[in-house]
Amino acid sequence: MSSQKLFSAFFLQVILATLVLGVANVQCLKLGFYKKTCPAAEDIVRKTTAQYISKAPTLAAPLLRMHFHDCFVRGCDGSVLLNSTKNNQAEKDAIPNLSLRGYHVIDAAKSAVEKKCPGVVSCADILALVARDAVSMINGPYWKVPTGRRDGKVSVALEALINLPPPFANITQLKSMFHSKGLSVKDLVVLSGGHTIGISHCSSFTNRLYNFTGKGDTDPSMDPNYVIQLKKKCRPGDVTTIVEMDPGSFKTFDGDYYTMVAKRRGLFQSDVALLDDVQTRKYVKLHSFSHGKSFGKDFAASMVKMGKVGVLTGKAGGIRKYCAFVNK
């Protein structure tokens, strides 16, 4: 079964899965949650993140994406960090997550915090803080992260396949998936702007270049000149070559992504889909002309909102000692 058909078959389950998991329990999240129990926690996470981003700034994009992928599956509970076991394939081994990287940064931050305050700070909070710090360290926006999340104990690969918006999603599917997480249409277009940094493998979009409808054709929604450029980099069946998502400024957090989308040069169908809704198209056009003047502020606000999706707080979940393993 193709990935598109599999997505369609499970699409309705996105809403059902969200209802089963319950409404986000956000009342226990607050700024400075560890002020008394581990006052140095956020500073330790920031310094650890800086050690890695200073040497490899391109890690910011996958760390941001990791936080997004965590929150969209079972809420922001650190479940994307769990390893698969003999009896269970975890989220990180689901197809949409195979390209995630930066787990070592999370592990390093967790280890440093554990030395200072064992058993106090959750992996879910560390991931949220690392994503924020990594983005701000490449001149992106900074936002205050409410903490108090607890770690989940369950991670299922199939749930990642069901809940994560695929690169071939249309605007109706995208709006429904974001709505199911309590996120608005504006959040959708703003968070899509995270594609201003990072790279993608050719395999995520080559069907748009060579076989869009199964007849050896090209996606008509993509700028023909851009198609020519991409074909020079990506041959049919190429699964190794990588392409900049925001050519020319993929290392810089800015509003150029919207300029690319407005020119019909978004890599994914889910990028160009932003032109198919009145509200998202208006936002794309606005920032393609203003060079993302208010994008940073909007992105910060949407990240705070996303970071509250489906969180476990209070006595729910637990505090994992190692982020890749459930406590024994």
Rank of each mutant, 00 (worst) to 15 (best):
K5I: 06
S8H: 03
S8D: 11
V14C: 12
L16D: 12
T18F: 03
T18D: 15
L19T: 07
G22Q: 04
A24C: 08
N25F: 01
C28F: 00
K30P: 03
L31S: 15
K35M: 03
T37G: 00
P39R: 03
A40M: 10
V45P: 04
K47D: 13
Q51F: 04
Y52T: 00
P57M: 01
T58H: 15
T58A: 15
A60N: 04
P62Y: 01
L63K: 08
L64H: 11
M66N: 14
F68D: 08
C71W: 05
F72K: 09
G75H: 05
G75D: 08
G75E: 01
V80P: 09
N83I: 04
S84D: 10
T85P: 09
N87P: 00
A90L: 04
L98K: 14
H104G: 15
V105A: 01
D107G: 09
A108E: 10
K110P: 08
K110H: 11
V113E: 07
C117K: 02
G119C: 01
V120Q: 12
S122F: 13
S122L: 11
L127Q: 12
L127T: 08
A128V: 09
V130I: 12
D133Q: 15
A134M: 04
N139A: 04
N139P: 02
G140I: 05
Y142Q: 11
K144Y: 03
V145Q: 13
P146D: 08
G152V: 10
G152R: 02
K153A: 00
V154A: 02
V154T: 06
L158H: 04
I162D: 01
I162S: 02
P167R: 15
P167G: 10
L174D: 12
L174M: 14
K175Q: 10
H179P: 00
S180P: 05
G182N: 10
L183C: 01
S184Q: 10
V189W: 07
S192W: 03
G194Y: 00
G194D: 01
H195P: 04
H201L: 13
C202R: 03
T213F: 05
K215W: 03
G216H: 10
D219Y: 12
D223K: 06
P224H: 14
P224S: 10
P224F: 03
Q229I: 01
L230H: 09
K233E: 13
K233W: 04
R235C: 00
P236N: 07
P236L: 07
G237I: 08
I242P: 00
G248E: 05
S249T: 10
S249G: 05
F253E: 02
D254R: 03
G255M: 00
V261G: 13
V261Q: 11
A262C: 12
A262D: 14
A262Y: 14
R265E: 14
R265W: 15
S270N: 11
D271S: 14
L274T: 12
D276Y: 00
D277I: 09
D277H: 04
V284K: 02
G292D: 07
K293N: 03
S294F: 09
K297N: 12
K297V: 13
K297A: 13
A300C: 07
G307C: 05
V311T: 14
L312P: 07
T313H: 13
G314E: 08
G318E: 14
G318T: 14
R320N: 15
Y322H: 14
A324T: 15
A324M: 07
F325Q: 14
